Amino acid sequence: MNFRKITAASAAVLALAVTATACGSDDKDSGSSGGGDKVKVGIKFDQPGLGLKKPDGSYAGFDVDVAKYVAKELGYDEKNIEFKETPSADRENALQRGDVDYIVASYSITDERKAKVDFAGPYLLAHQDLLIRADDNIAKGADLNGKKLCSVTGSTSAQNVKKSIAPKAQLRKYGTYSECLDGLTSGAVDAVTTDDSILAGYASQDQYKGKVKLAGLKLSNENYGIGVKKGDTKMTDKINKALEKMASDGAWEKAVKDNFGPANYKNEPAPKIGNIVK
Protein backbone atom coordinates (compact mmCIF):
# COMPACT_ATOMS: atom_id res chain seq x y z
CA MET A 1 0.00 0.00 0.00
CA ASN A 2 2.76 2.44 0.92
CA PHE A 3 4.62 1.46 -2.25
CA ARG A 4 1.59 2.39 -4.34
CA LYS A 5 1.30 5.80 -2.64
CA ILE A 6 4.95 6.60 -3.34
CA THR A 7 4.55 5.55 -6.96
CA ALA A 8 1.49 7.74 -7.40
CA ALA A 9 3.26 10.71 -5.85
CA SER A 10 6.28 10.20 -8.07
CA ALA A 11 4.04 10.02 -11.11
CA ALA A 12 2.41 13.30 -10.13
CA VAL A 13 5.80 15.00 -9.76
CA LEU A 14 6.89 13.61 -13.12
CA ALA A 15 3.72 14.87 -14.79
CA LEU A 16 4.30 18.36 -13.38
CA ALA A 17 7.89 18.32 -14.62
CA VAL A 18 6.80 17.31 -18.13
CA THR A 19 4.15 20.03 -18.14
CA ALA A 20 6.64 22.66 -17.03
CA THR A 21 9.10 21.55 -19.71
CA ALA A 22 6.39 21.76 -22.37
CA CYS A 23 5.42 25.25 -21.25
CA GLY A 24 9.05 26.31 -21.28
CA SER A 25 9.52 25.09 -24.85
CA ASP A 26 6.81 27.47 -26.05
CA ASP A 27 9.07 30.36 -25.12
CA LYS A 28 11.56 29.29 -27.81
CA ASP A 29 9.12 29.63 -30.67
CA SER A 30 9.80 32.36 -33.21
CA GLY A 31 8.22 35.63 -32.17
CA SER A 32 8.71 39.25 -31.25
CA SER A 33 11.31 38.52 -28.58
CA GLY A 34 13.74 36.99 -31.10
CA GLY A 35 16.26 34.26 -30.34
CA GLY A 36 13.86 31.34 -30.90
CA ASP A 37 14.51 28.21 -32.93
CA LYS A 38 13.42 29.69 -36.27
CA VAL A 39 12.72 33.10 -37.70
CA LYS A 40 10.43 33.53 -40.73
CA VAL A 41 11.45 36.36 -43.03
CA GLY A 42 9.49 37.65 -46.03
CA ILE A 43 11.50 38.56 -49.12
CA LYS A 44 11.01 38.74 -52.87
CA PHE A 45 12.10 35.69 -54.85
CA ASP A 46 12.24 37.35 -58.28
CA GLN A 47 14.16 40.64 -57.91
CA PRO A 48 17.84 40.34 -58.93
CA GLY A 49 20.08 42.44 -56.68
CA LEU A 50 17.43 42.65 -53.96
CA GLY A 51 15.72 39.34 -53.31
CA LEU A 52 16.31 36.40 -55.62
CA LYS A 53 15.89 32.66 -55.13
CA LYS A 54 18.63 31.02 -57.20
CA PRO A 55 18.32 27.68 -59.03
CA ASP A 56 20.32 25.93 -56.28
CA GLY A 57 17.77 27.04 -53.68
CA SER A 58 19.96 29.71 -52.07
CA TYR A 59 19.01 33.37 -51.77
CA ALA A 60 20.88 36.50 -52.84
CA GLY A 61 20.43 40.26 -52.90
CA PHE A 62 20.71 43.39 -50.81
CA ASP A 63 17.42 42.73 -49.00
CA VAL A 64 18.62 39.19 -48.26
CA ASP A 65 21.88 40.52 -46.79
CA VAL A 66 19.95 42.98 -44.63
CA ALA A 67 17.53 40.25 -43.52
CA LYS A 68 20.41 37.94 -42.55
CA TYR A 69 22.22 40.66 -40.61
CA VAL A 70 19.07 41.54 -38.69
CA ALA A 71 18.38 37.88 -37.92
CA LYS A 72 21.90 37.48 -36.55
CA GLU A 73 21.42 40.49 -34.27
CA LEU A 74 18.11 39.01 -33.09
CA GLY A 75 19.96 35.87 -32.05
CA TYR A 76 19.34 33.51 -34.97
CA ASP A 77 21.91 31.42 -36.84
CA GLU A 78 21.67 31.76 -40.62
CA LYS A 79 20.64 28.10 -40.90
CA ASN A 80 17.56 28.92 -38.81
CA ILE A 81 16.24 31.60 -41.15
CA GLU A 82 13.19 30.48 -43.10
CA PHE A 83 12.72 32.73 -46.13
CA LYS A 84 9.18 33.04 -47.41
CA GLU A 85 8.13 34.63 -50.69
CA THR A 86 5.99 37.71 -50.07
CA PRO A 87 4.67 39.34 -53.26
CA SER A 88 3.89 43.05 -52.95
CA ALA A 89 0.13 42.53 -52.84
CA ASP A 90 0.36 40.09 -49.90
CA ARG A 91 2.87 41.79 -47.61
CA GLU A 92 0.41 43.32 -45.14
CA ASN A 93 -1.66 40.13 -44.99
CA ALA A 94 1.42 37.96 -44.42
CA LEU A 95 2.31 40.02 -41.33
CA GLN A 96 -1.25 40.09 -40.02
CA ARG A 97 -1.61 36.32 -40.44
CA GLY A 98 1.70 35.67 -38.71
CA ASP A 99 3.17 33.93 -41.76
CA VAL A 100 6.37 35.94 -41.28
CA ASP A 101 8.08 37.72 -38.40
CA TYR A 102 9.34 40.59 -40.53
CA ILE A 103 9.54 41.55 -44.21
CA VAL A 104 12.54 42.90 -46.14
CA ALA A 105 11.23 43.25 -49.70
CA SER A 106 11.73 46.70 -51.31
CA TYR A 107 8.88 47.75 -49.01
CA SER A 108 8.43 51.52 -49.31
CA ILE A 109 7.15 53.23 -46.17
CA THR A 110 3.86 55.06 -46.86
CA ASP A 111 1.14 56.49 -44.63
CA GLU A 112 -1.37 54.04 -46.09
CA ARG A 113 0.80 51.05 -45.21
CA LYS A 114 1.66 52.42 -41.76
CA ALA A 115 -2.03 52.20 -40.90
CA LYS A 116 -1.77 48.40 -41.30
CA VAL A 117 1.79 47.49 -40.27
CA ASP A 118 4.74 48.97 -38.38
CA PHE A 119 8.08 49.74 -40.01
CA ALA A 120 11.65 49.61 -38.79
CA GLY A 121 14.13 51.76 -40.67
CA PRO A 122 14.32 53.05 -43.29
CA TYR A 123 17.36 51.03 -44.39
CA LEU A 124 17.61 52.35 -47.97
CA LEU A 125 16.58 55.54 -49.76
CA ALA A 126 15.82 54.64 -53.36
CA HIS A 127 14.46 56.80 -56.17
CA GLN A 128 12.32 56.18 -59.19
CA ASP A 129 14.67 56.21 -62.16
CA LEU A 130 15.07 55.07 -65.75
CA LEU A 131 17.13 52.30 -67.27
CA ILE A 132 18.27 53.18 -70.79
CA ARG A 133 20.61 51.74 -73.40
CA ALA A 134 24.31 52.31 -72.72
CA ASP A 135 24.71 54.47 -75.85
CA ASP A 136 21.59 56.56 -75.18
CA ASN A 137 21.22 59.77 -73.20
CA ILE A 138 18.12 60.94 -71.35
CA ALA A 139 19.08 63.88 -69.18
CA LYS A 140 15.67 64.69 -67.72
CA GLY A 141 12.24 63.18 -67.39
CA ALA A 142 10.74 65.39 -70.08
CA ASP A 143 13.07 63.77 -72.62
CA LEU A 144 10.74 60.75 -72.45
CA ASN A 145 8.05 62.61 -74.40
CA GLY A 146 7.54 60.72 -77.65
CA LYS A 147 9.66 57.77 -76.47
CA LYS A 148 8.48 54.25 -75.62
CA LEU A 149 8.52 53.71 -71.85
CA CYS A 150 8.20 50.25 -70.32
CA SER A 151 7.06 49.14 -66.89
CA VAL A 152 5.18 46.14 -65.52
CA THR A 153 1.42 45.85 -65.44
CA GLY A 154 0.03 47.43 -62.28
CA SER A 155 3.09 49.58 -61.62
CA THR A 156 2.54 53.11 -60.32
CA SER A 157 5.96 54.22 -61.62
CA ALA A 158 4.94 54.50 -65.25
CA GLN A 159 1.69 56.24 -64.31
CA ASN A 160 3.71 58.77 -62.32
CA VAL A 161 5.77 59.56 -65.42
CA LYS A 162 2.69 59.87 -67.65
CA LYS A 163 0.85 62.06 -65.16
CA SER A 164 3.54 64.42 -63.93
CA ILE A 165 6.75 64.14 -65.95
CA ALA A 166 6.29 63.19 -69.61
CA PRO A 167 2.60 63.05 -70.61
CA LYS A 168 3.48 62.26 -74.23
CA ALA A 169 5.55 59.18 -73.39
CA GLN A 170 4.28 56.03 -75.11
CA LEU A 171 3.61 53.57 -72.31
CA ARG A 172 4.29 49.86 -72.85
CA LYS A 173 3.21 47.41 -70.13
CA TYR A 174 4.89 44.00 -69.90
CA GLY A 175 4.38 41.17 -67.45
CA THR A 176 7.85 41.29 -65.90
CA TYR A 177 10.84 43.61 -65.73
CA SER A 178 12.91 40.97 -67.50
CA GLU A 179 10.60 41.39 -70.51
CA CYS A 180 11.09 45.15 -70.29
CA LEU A 181 14.88 44.68 -70.23
CA ASP A 182 14.75 42.43 -73.27
CA GLY A 183 12.61 45.05 -75.02
CA LEU A 184 15.15 47.72 -74.11
CA THR A 185 18.15 45.84 -75.47
CA SER A 186 16.29 44.88 -78.66
CA GLY A 187 15.12 48.45 -79.31
CA ALA A 188 11.42 47.72 -78.81
CA VAL A 189 11.31 50.27 -75.98
CA ASP A 190 13.52 53.25 -75.11
CA ALA A 191 13.48 53.16 -71.32
CA VAL A 192 12.35 51.11 -68.33
CA THR A 193 11.13 52.75 -65.13
CA THR A 194 10.83 51.67 -61.50
CA ASP A 195 12.96 52.14 -58.35
CA ASP A 196 16.66 52.65 -59.12
CA SER A 197 17.59 49.84 -56.70
CA ILE A 198 15.45 47.37 -58.67
CA LEU A 199 16.81 48.61 -62.00
CA ALA A 200 20.39 48.36 -60.70
CA GLY A 201 19.79 44.75 -59.73
CA TYR A 202 18.69 43.86 -63.24
CA ALA A 203 21.46 45.89 -64.86
CA SER A 204 24.03 43.98 -62.76
CA GLN A 205 23.06 40.66 -64.38
CA ASP A 206 25.68 39.27 -66.75
CA GLN A 207 23.44 39.36 -69.85
CA TYR A 208 22.87 43.11 -69.48
CA LYS A 209 26.34 44.33 -68.44
CA GLY A 210 27.60 47.02 -70.79
CA LYS A 211 24.29 47.16 -72.64
CA VAL A 212 22.19 49.30 -70.29
CA LYS A 213 22.74 52.02 -67.70
CA LEU A 214 20.86 54.01 -65.10
CA ALA A 215 19.87 57.51 -66.22
CA GLY A 216 20.51 58.82 -62.71
CA LEU A 217 17.24 60.76 -62.40
CA LYS A 218 15.56 61.10 -59.02
CA LEU A 219 11.91 61.09 -60.02
CA SER A 220 10.63 60.15 -56.54
CA ASN A 221 11.83 59.16 -53.07
CA GLU A 222 11.25 55.58 -51.90
CA ASN A 223 12.11 54.90 -48.25
CA TYR A 224 12.53 51.13 -47.84
CA GLY A 225 11.51 49.86 -44.42
CA ILE A 226 11.32 46.48 -42.70
CA GLY A 227 7.69 45.54 -42.17
CA VAL A 228 6.67 44.27 -38.72
CA LYS A 229 3.27 43.23 -37.38
CA LYS A 230 1.27 46.23 -36.17
CA GLY A 231 1.90 46.96 -32.50
CA ASP A 232 5.05 44.83 -32.15
CA THR A 233 7.21 47.65 -30.81
CA LYS A 234 9.66 45.24 -29.19
CA MET A 235 10.57 43.66 -32.53
CA THR A 236 10.65 47.06 -34.25
CA ASP A 237 13.08 48.48 -31.68
CA LYS A 238 15.40 45.47 -31.96
CA ILE A 239 15.47 45.67 -35.74
CA ASN A 240 16.22 49.40 -35.62
CA LYS A 241 19.21 48.74 -33.37
CA ALA A 242 20.42 46.06 -35.78
CA LEU A 243 20.13 48.44 -38.75
CA GLU A 244 22.08 51.12 -36.89
CA LYS A 245 24.85 48.63 -36.19
CA MET A 246 24.87 47.45 -39.81
CA ALA A 247 25.40 51.02 -41.01
CA SER A 248 28.13 51.78 -38.46
CA ASP A 249 30.26 48.64 -38.89
CA GLY A 250 30.53 48.82 -42.69
CA ALA A 251 28.30 45.82 -43.46
CA TRP A 252 25.62 48.03 -45.06
CA GLU A 253 28.02 49.66 -47.52
CA LYS A 254 29.54 46.28 -48.39
CA ALA A 255 26.08 44.86 -49.14
CA VAL A 256 25.36 47.78 -51.48
CA LYS A 257 28.60 47.28 -53.40
CA ASP A 258 28.24 43.49 -53.55
CA ASN A 259 24.74 43.63 -55.01
CA PHE A 260 24.58 46.84 -57.06
CA GLY A 261 28.23 47.56 -57.90
CA PRO A 262 28.25 46.30 -61.50
CA ALA A 263 25.46 48.76 -62.39
CA ASN A 264 27.45 51.77 -61.11
CA TYR A 265 24.58 52.47 -58.72
CA LYS A 266 25.05 55.85 -57.04
CA ASN A 267 23.37 55.06 -53.75
CA GLU A 268 22.38 57.48 -51.04
CA PRO A 269 24.17 57.08 -47.68
CA ALA A 270 22.58 54.75 -45.16
CA PRO A 271 19.52 56.65 -43.88
CA LYS A 272 19.02 57.57 -40.25
CA ILE A 273 16.42 55.50 -38.47
CA GLY A 274 13.05 57.24 -38.56
CA ASN A 275 14.13 59.81 -41.16
CA ILE A 276 11.57 59.61 -43.96
CA VAL A 277 12.48 61.68 -47.01
CA LYS A 278 9.36 63.00 -48.74
Rank of each mutant, 00 (worst) to 15 (best):
S58D: 11
K272T: 13
V192S: 02
R91Y: 08
S220C: 06
A126H: 02
K163S: 15
A215D: 01
V13L: 13
G36A: 05
A158G: 15
P55F: 10
S33H: 15
K173S: 14
K213Q: 11
Y208P: 04
L243M: 08
T7M: 14
V117D: 00
K278R: 13
D37C: 07
V18E: 01
A120F: 04
K168S: 12
S248N: 12
I239T: 03
V100H: 08
T110D: 04
G201W: 05
A200W: 03
K257A: 13
E92D: 14
L14K: 08
N93G: 05
S25H: 07
L214M: 09
M235D: 01
K54W: 06
V64Y: 07
K241D: 09
E92L: 13
D77H: 10
T110W: 03
E85I: 06
D101T: 08
Y224R: 08
A188V: 11
D249Y: 07
Q47G: 00
V161N: 04
D143F: 03
D190R: 02
S30P: 09
V161T: 09
S106Q: 10
D37K: 13
N137G: 01
K209D: 02
L125G: 03
C180D: 00
P262W: 03
A242K: 03
P271G: 08
D26W: 14
E85P: 04
D206L: 11
K211S: 02
E244T: 12
A17S: 13
K148R: 15
G201M: 11
A166Q: 03
Y102D: 03
N223R: 08
K163D: 14
L199H: 05
F119A: 02
D101K: 07
D46R: 10
V13P: 00
V104G: 01
P167G: 06
T21K: 08
K173D: 05
G35R: 03
D65V: 14
T194W: 00
N221M: 10
L95E: 03
R4F: 15
K40Y: 15
F45P: 02
F45E: 13
S30Q: 11
A251W: 05
S58C: 11
L214H: 04
D29A: 15
K79Y: 02
F83T: 09
G154D: 02
K218F: 06
A89D: 12
T19M: 14
E244G: 13
E179V: 00
A17Y: 09
R4C: 11
E253A: 14
L125M: 09
I132Q: 01
G31L: 11
K230I: 04
K116M: 10
I198L: 14
K72N: 13
V152F: 00
G51M: 10
A71L: 07
G201R: 09
S10Y: 11
L219G: 07
A22I: 15
K272M: 04
G61E: 09
L131N: 02
L14N: 07
I276D: 01
K162R: 15
G36S: 01
G201E: 07
L243E: 05
E244W: 06
R133T: 09
Q159W: 08
D237F: 10
V192L: 06
V212H: 01
R133Q: 07
S106T: 14
K163V: 11
P87V: 06
R97T: 15
E73I: 09
K173N: 12
S58P: 07
K38H: 11
A60Y: 13
V64G: 06
S10D: 02
F3H: 12
L95R: 03
F62G: 06
D249I: 08
A115L: 13
